[in-house]
Design a protein around this nucleic acid. Structure first.
Length: 1037
RNA sequence: GCAGGAGUAGCGAAGUGGUCAAACGCGCGAGACUCAAGAUCUCGUCCCUUAGUGGGUUCAGAGGUUCGAAUCCUCUCUCCUGCACCA
């Protein structure tokens, strides 16, 4: 009867939601002020762009993640800043507005209004008083102010640059906005290259710090950090001058050790000074070439064949005075390094390809390092893959000739002997060189370093191995050297990939004769697959045959790894590493080179030939040039009235464009470009600290209180743009003395993406969106919140399921039912409660019987469960494991008895309030509390109440009940008997775990419990003897 | 190619050395209630076996370390994401 009501009862979630949303707003529940006495916590979600189509479930997912965290920290007693604002400038708004025939401002503001309304309906606990919108002059004034500061410090500058131009956006794009040669917003539009005067921010001045301090971001996800490192791209190398036509042309290289292998130079086809190198004779050819590559629009770098043309000039190699031709090529990046490279075809894939195509010389100057350690593979006579085993080797000593003395540990010897005993032949265990040898070094502090033995790690391994020998306390060769049989076998399947560093047949033969080349041991392969016996003769024949017909060996493969120098004058025989140092040093001595650190990061192009953005505060005067708008004249307001159509709309507005020069009062014109929208989002988090300040960008004290952001939540797609820019701005503003932190954010949390039921990312264009309104109408938004958080860990991509949300809904309804009937209040109260739930009417509980609720009593078991849950959920929330928190909450609820203390029920409601704030507030009120549960404090854990025996007893009872039911079932099925009396015989030490009443209730039969050794009691057939720890003996009559 | 992440029952998803045949949810099956359906409640849901038992095979695959592995190590395979001619 009662159960039936649950389904049929229509709980008007909507009314409850509205009621509490209004109350929160009216009471300014979530507004905060700086309070030095309270510890602050700053939770922030990435500034959304207010799209016209509004929010869908995916947005809900994102915001709820942050909301739960903010609510949690608030309950934990922190002064929580949790603001919201809008990144309201930008191309999409402009385009959408044009399409809709509306003014972008009107359009945007309409969208924002809608966004706010929708966000409020999700019950998000933002401090709405701090709202910031980047399209308002109050905000972008400070964009301009920062620009002026940058200009002052020489960090904002103008230069003519080849820029990425998207014909659809009708604007320049930043490098970050070009994806595979296409516009990031128009995937079907090829990006063109244009040369224009553009404004840049000199972010490269901060490249070093931006790179180096990535490691200090300990609470950022590894992948984001890796992406940033990769993006900034730090390389250590040398800048070397090559003389061309008597003039020094610097190039950057990381491989100074290969300088003796330089056989030509390549200058980028986009290099601004390219034509200076082109001789009269070659001019025509070069121009034809340039035209050709321009007409082939940018394709995938992979597909693009390397092409070039001789410029007619020659460069002089500063090391050996050799004269090498200078080519121009399509594969050299113009704005990395100096836009020119020295080409070493023997040791660089790209140069190699180019050299082969144009018949340029290839000279090997690096040889492969010889592996100094051998490790062996043993196998049986009738060999199969399974029979391979590896033996362990310990380094004992490094001998003077560079080899190692090794020791075979006992267990390996044992293995070896076993093999012999099994008549497995050790016959060829001497013949194979390890494909890969792995060292594990255990350091004093317990840290284990794993090093694959390759040329790169060799020195490190050497060093550690020697340390081990000299001082075994310090380092221990922890695990072993290990050969990889499988690796060897695999290598043999694609031999051409694996033959490196050998350049002529003579070498090959000699290597073979020494047995060194057997690493690509086809022999093993053949033996394994054909189950042949090892026969050295046939093997040799096979190999010789292979060499002769060239079937698996390609004689010339680029050797890109470092190694030992050859053909390099006095540097021959040095290792690459050493040679780099010495060669650079020598070049420095003659003034033709120096060490250099080079970054991939380029200056940030901020000019946009678009209307809907922050105007750049610069005035061009015929006399004075580019003059910054004086600070007192800020903001340069974006005019409302412009014509859209061709070109830059601002340029068409004469009132805006024609001004007096601030310096000389002469005729002047305004800059008509606007700034990239990423400018707006680079510092908004600071404005939140003091959003309404009219005189300053923000108050220093306030920013000092709130900054840095403690938890920043957003999508992974911003790993390289926004998340670098906002770090850059932070560092710049720190250098201006405005803030005292160098990094804007401590914890970065990347949430996953919500996918629709069809498995694709939820998006309007895909047509699989679920709207919060729809779900809210059917189940209430709290249900949606609860469901979204229970699917999976929020950093994972999750799948929406209409069925799944039903489950969350059922749970919530059960909770309503439970609390509604808590302590069976008076009929009067019940009626009014019903009314509230149905109609959302307010009840004055102070007048109702609820205040006189008699406290129930929680059992010790329940107290245990509650305290344990609070403790666990606390941990889970802290670590964003919301899904686990929800499970714990559900399990806790399942364990509720009919009697519970008010305090304990409140603890539950508090935890529930993170996920389902509206109904939780309602419950809070129903329980007779004033104020908001949202502002109550998180429950303290009483450790003394946590007693694991309760869980153990639970487990025992559960399994006992399971067993009983099972027997009853079997009895019925097999003997057609209805068991009625159940006898349990338990071990004396476990008697306390058994609750006869509980069991009887659950199985619906009479239950008697005896202690095993209680001989006087009834024990048919001596069943009692069957009792075990955790398992009673059962007899059913 | 480089970098980062992932692979667990029909599905989603927990689980990082023993308490694991693996939480929880969905799905599915059986039973209870009901005239019936839905809802609700109870139980079950790797395989075999059984009065509650016992046994077997599992956590992408292969090997290894360990008294003991989904969890640690090595190799391999597959998938996702990002960067990609950066010299």
């Amino acid at each position: 009867m009662k159960k039936q009501e649950i389904k049929n009862k229509k709980i008007d979630f909507h009314k409850i939601e509205k009621k509490w949303q209004e109350k929160w707003e009216k009471k300014k529940a979530f507004e905060v002020k700086e309070d030095k006495k309270k510890k602050k916590y700053y939770v922030l979600e990435m500034f959304p762009y207010p799209s016209g189509s509004g929010l869908h479930m995916g947005h809900t997912f994102n915001y709820v993640i942050g909301d739960i965290y903010a609510r949690y920290m608030r309950m934990k007693g922190f002064n929580v800043l949790y603001p919201m604002g809008y990144d309201s400038f930008g191309l999409p708004a402009e385009n959408a507005a044009i399409k809709a025939g509306e003014n972008p401002k009107k359009y945007t503001e309409k969208s924002i209004k809608n966004f706010i309304k929708q966000q409020k309906e999700l019950g998000l606990s933002y401090d709405w008083s701090r709202i910031v919108m980047s399209h308002t002059p109050e905000y972008y004034k400070w964009d301009q102010w920062i620009f002026l500061k940058m200009f002052e410090k020489g960090l904002a500058y103008k230069k003519k640059a080849s820029v990425n131009w998207c014909s659809k956006c009708n604007s320049v794009l930043a490098n970050e906005q070009v994806h595979n040669g296409k516009c990031w917003r128009h995937e079907d539009t090829d990006v063109e290259i244009k040369y224009l005067e553009q404004w840049f921010f000199k972010i490269t001045d901060y490249a070093e710090e931006l790179y180096d301090s990535i490691d200090s971001l300990t609470e950022w996800p590894e992948d984001v950090k890796a992406m940033q490192k990769n993006w900034i791209g730090k390389s250590y190398g040398a800048e070397i001058n090559f003389k061309i036509n008597g003039e020094n042309w610097p190039i950057f290289t990381t491989r100074a050790d290969t300088i003796y292998g330089v056989s030509f130079m390549v200058i980028s086809a986009q290099h601004p000074r390219l034509m200076e190198l082109v001789t009269k004779e070659q001019k025509k050819e070069v121009e034809t070439f340039l035209k050709k590559i321009k007409s082939t629009s940018e394709k995938d770098a992979n597909e693009l064949e390397k092409e070039g043309e001789f410029t007619g000039s020659y460069a002089i190699n500063p090391m050996n005075e050799e004269k090498v031709p200078v080519y121009t090529g399509n594969f050299v990046v113009a704005d990395y390094g100096s836009g020119m490279v020295m080409a070493v075809p023997a040791h660089d894939k790209r140069d190699f390809e180019f050299a082969k195509k144009y018949g340029l010389p290839i000279r090997q100057v690096i040889r492969k390092l010889k592996a100094p350690i051998r490790s062996y593979v043993m196998g049986s006579e009738n060999i199969s893959e399974k029979d391979f085993t590896s033996i362990n080797i310990k380094i004992v000593e490094k001998t003077s000739d560079g080899d190692y003395k090794i020791e075979i540990p006992k267990e390996s010897i044992k293995k070896y002997e076993e093999l012999i005993a099994k008549k497995m032949s050790p016959g060829f265990w001497n013949e194979y060189i390890a494909e890969e040898v792995v060292f594990l070094f255990k350091h004093k502090d317990g840290k284990i370093e794993r090093l694959v033995m390759n040329d790169k790690n060799l020195e490190r391994i050497d060093k550690l191995a020697c340390e081990f020998i000299e001082n075994s306390d310090d380092v221990e060769v922890f695990d072993k050297l290990r050969t990889s049989v499988r690796g060897t076998l695999r290598a043999s399947k694609s031999p051409e990939q694996d033959t490196q560093g050998l350049f002529d047949e003579k070498t090959i033969s000699s290597e073979f004769s020494k047995g060194q080349f057997l690493k690509t041991s086809d022999t093993i392969n053949r033996i394994v697959h054909n189950n042949q016996k090892y026969d050295p003769k046939s093997t040799d024949n096979y190999i010789n045959g292979a060499i002769a017909n060239n079937s698996w060996y390609q004689p010339l493969i680029v050797h890109e790894e470092e190694g030992i120098l050859i053909n390099s004058s006095e540097f021959t025989d040095l290792t690459s590493e050493e040679a780099k140092k010495q060669i650079t040093k020598k070049l420095e001595g003659i003034g033709l080179g120096k060490e250099k650190i080079q970054y991939k990061l380029r200056d940030w192009l901020i000019s946009r030939q678009r209307y809907w953005g922050t105007p750049i505060p610069i005035i061009y005067c015929e006399k004075c040039g580019a003059v910054p708008v004086p600070e007192k004249n800020l903001p340069v307001v974006l005019p409302d009235k412009v014509k859209f159509g061709e070109g830059n709309p601002l340029a068409g507005n004469k009132e805006f464009v024609n001004v007096k020069c601030p310096k000389c009062e002469g005729k002047a014109t305004r800059e008509t470009d606007t700034m990239d929208t990423f400018v707006n989002s680079s510092w908004y988090f600071l404005r939140y600290c003091d959003p309404k300040n009219k005189n300053k960008i923000f108050d220093k004290e306030k920013a000092a209180y709130w900054m840095p952001i403690d938890t920043y939540i957003g999508g992974k797609e911003h790993a390289c743009m926004h998340l670098i820019y906002f770090r850059f701005y932070t560092k710049f503003l720190r250098d201006l003395g405005l803030i005292n932190v160098g990094e804007p954010d401590k914890v970065l949390f990347n949430q996953g993406m919500l996918h629709g039921e069809d498995g694709a990312v939820m998006s309007k264009s895909r047509g699989n969106v679920v709207l919060p309104e729809t779900v809210s109408k059917k189940y209430g938004i709290d249900t949606a919140r609860l469901f979204l958080m229970s699917i999976a860990s929020p950093d994972k991509d999750i799948l929406w399921s209409d069925k799944g949300v039903e489950g969350s809904s059922k749970f919530l309804k059960k909770v309503v039912e439970y609390i509604e009937n808590f302590e069976k209040p008076s009929q009067n109260f019940q009626n009014s409660l019903r009314r509230t739930l149905k109609e959302g009417k307010n009840i004055d509980y102070s007048k109702s019987s609820i205040r006189n609720f008699k406290k129930g009593k929680s059992s010790a078991k329940l107290e245990h469960k509650i305290n344990k849950a609070v403790k666990g959920i606390d941990e889970d929330i802290k670590k964003f494991r919301y899904n686990l928190a929800v499970i714990k909450l559900r399990m806790l609820f399942e364990s509720f008895d009919s009697e519970i203390s008010k305090e304990d029920l409140e603890k539950f409601v508090k935890m529930l309030s993170l996920f389902c704030p509206h109904v939780a507030e309602e419950f809070w009120e129903m329980l007779g509390n004033k104020g908001f549960v949202s502002l109550s404090s998180w429950s303290e854990v009483d450790e003394s109440k946590i007693k694991e025996e309760f869980d153990k007893a639970d487990r025992i009872i559960e399994s006992t009940i399971g067993d009983i039911i099972n027997i009853l079932k079997l009895l019925k099925e097999k003997q057609n008997k209805e068991g009625n009396k159940i006898y349990l015989y338990v071990l004396p030490q476990e008697i306390n775990f058994y609750d006869g009443e509980e069991i009887a209730k659950r199985v619906g039969k009479e239950v008697k419990i005896f202690v095993v050794n209680d001989k006087n009691k009834y024990d048919p057939q001596g069943k009692a003897a069957k009792a075990k720890p955790g398992k009673p003996a059962i007899y059913i009559e």
